[in-house]
Simulated assay, not measured.
Amino acid sequence: MALRYIPMSTDQAERLRQGGNDAYGNPPERQISDGDGVPCRHCLGNVDAGDTYLIFALRPFTSLQPYAETGPVFMHADECPAYSDEVRPPILTSSKDYLLRGYGSNERIIYGTGGVVPAEQLESRAEALLSMPEVASVHVRSAKNNCYQCRIERP
């Protein structure tokens, strides 16, 4: 099964770059990247050393409900293209493991789907979760800090 890696929306990225508020109602913070561990949630690449990036609270869900987790993420401060490939994005190549969790079409966790998987098993675990009829999407998070990375869907 091919996988689709879904970044945050371009509309949301542009709104934040223009000074719009994040999921907690705050404007994004601007920082300069040291080039280490600054993954952009829009292009799904890393922010290079010396480049400006934004830190903000992201809630990668369309509705407010108990399972709609919110947390800190990074994004290039300057325009970057939204990720649109079916190969593993660069931000999912820098850790030895990731937390994957299946969600239903109602954006609620499907219990029993969550777990930390080694990086080399990311695709096979995502495919296994997406083969379950009740799983509509898989969220990938940092295994160390629980930060949201991206969503994976069926093509």
Score class of each variant (00 low, 15 high):
85 D>W: 04
37 G>V: 04
27 P>I: 01
4 R>Q: 10
143 A>D: 13
40 C>G: 09
147 C>S: 12
6 I>F: 01
138 V>S: 09
42 H>E: 06
51 D>F: 08
17 R>L: 02
68 A>L: 08
58 L>M: 07
72 P>N: 09
135 V>L: 00
58 L>P: 02
83 Y>S: 07
139 H>C: 01
59 R>S: 09
80 C>P: 03
89 P>Q: 06
62 T>L: 12
3 L>G: 06
49 A>V: 05
124 S>M: 12
138 V>Y: 10
110 I>F: 02
15 R>S: 00
72 P>L: 14
155 P>M: 10
50 G>F: 03
15 R>I: 00
35 G>R: 09
107 E>Q: 15
8 M>K: 00
21 N>F: 09
111 Y>R: 14
47 V>A: 06
136 A>H: 15
55 I>D: 11
54 L>M: 04
55 I>Y: 07
127 E>K: 12
55 I>L: 15
148 Y>M: 06
150 C>P: 03
96 K>D: 15
63 S>M: 13
94 S>D: 06
21 N>K: 14
20 G>Q: 04
121 Q>I: 12
16 L>D: 03
123 E>G: 08
110 I>L: 14
91 I>C: 11
92 L>A: 07
101 R>W: 01
9 S>Y: 00
67 Y>E: 15
79 E>L: 08
44 L>H: 02
50 G>Y: 02
139 H>N: 05
130 L>V: 09
143 A>C: 09
45 G>A: 09
61 F>A: 12
120 E>C: 14
142 S>A: 13
26 N>D: 12
21 N>H: 10
122 L>T: 10
147 C>L: 02
48 D>V: 04
11 D>M: 01
19 G>A: 11
114 G>V: 04
87 V>H: 13
145 N>P: 05
56 F>Q: 00
127 E>C: 10
76 H>Q: 06
95 S>N: 08
115 G>I: 08
16 L>A: 02
66 P>V: 09
117 V>E: 03
146 N>W: 11
153 E>Q: 13
149 Q>S: 05
31 Q>M: 10
43 C>G: 03
27 P>W: 01
70 T>P: 00
48 D>N: 08
92 L>H: 05
98 Y>H: 04
22 D>H: 06
78 D>T: 00
82 A>H: 00
132 M>K: 11
100 L>H: 01
124 S>L: 14
33 S>N: 08
146 N>L: 09
59 R>P: 01
123 E>D: 15
7 P>R: 03
71 G>Q: 07
131 S>L: 11
149 Q>A: 10
97 D>H: 13
103 Y>M: 09
15 R>W: 03
102 G>V: 02
141 R>Y: 01
80 C>V: 10
65 Q>V: 07
46 N>H: 13
65 Q>W: 14
62 T>G: 14
34 D>A: 14
105 S>G: 15
151 R>P: 01
63 S>A: 15
4 R>V: 03
40 C>S: 10
104 G>F: 05
46 N>I: 07
34 D>G: 13
114 G>S: 15
